[in-house]
């Protein structure tokens, strides 16, 4: 299958990068063939905001079914889940090839925490936080007294 691995360079021997939105390269590998299908230079590195969502869009557009990286923020997590991309976190600091070997050996668990769809806004106790699947992803949270 096509798996995206975040990396410092554009080859299968490059070192992995643990950030998602700010990783210099997004490498799409074929998990069976151990080949690089496509290496995409991540323009989101310099993005003012939304680097994670922009990277998620790249992955969705390339048809990758999974993402292996260090840590995915809540907004990017929600986007990836909406696109049906499985997330694997806590990637080791090694070569992309070694990370792929670890992946195939079952070392990485899928991250399945419920993303706060559009979290980062709409605070307030309970009410207003959108759940996955609703179109707008922005809660209408009202300030609750604590």
């Amino acid at each position: 299958m096509k798996l995206c691995i975040t990396a410092d360079g554009n080859s299968i021997e490059s070192l992995t990068d643990s950030s998602f939105g700010r990783a210099p390269w997004l490498i799409i590998v074929d998990t069976e063939q151990y080949t690089v299908v496509e290496a995409i230079e991540n323009s989101g590195v310099n993005a003012s905001q939304g680097a994670g969502i922009a990277a998620a869009q790249t992955i969705a557009d390339k048809g990758a079914l999974g993402l292996l990286t260090g840590r995915v923020g809540p907004k990017a997590q929600a986007a990836l889940q909406a696109a049906g991309v499985k997330i694997y976190e806590n990637i080791g600091r090694c070569s992309v090839r070694e990370a792929l070997e670890q992946f195939n050996a079952g070392k990485y668990q899928e991250s399945t925490g419920t993303a706060e769809y559009g979290s980062g806004c709409g605070s307030g106790k309970g009410g207003g936080r959108g759940s996955g699947g609703r179109g707008m992803g922005r809660g209408q949270g009202r300030r609750g007294g604590m």
Binding site: R143, G144, M146
Partner: peptide, 10 residues
Amino acid sequence: LKRVVEVARF
């Protein structure tokens, strides 16, 4: 303080 606690909890 209450407001910043809310943000931290969020």
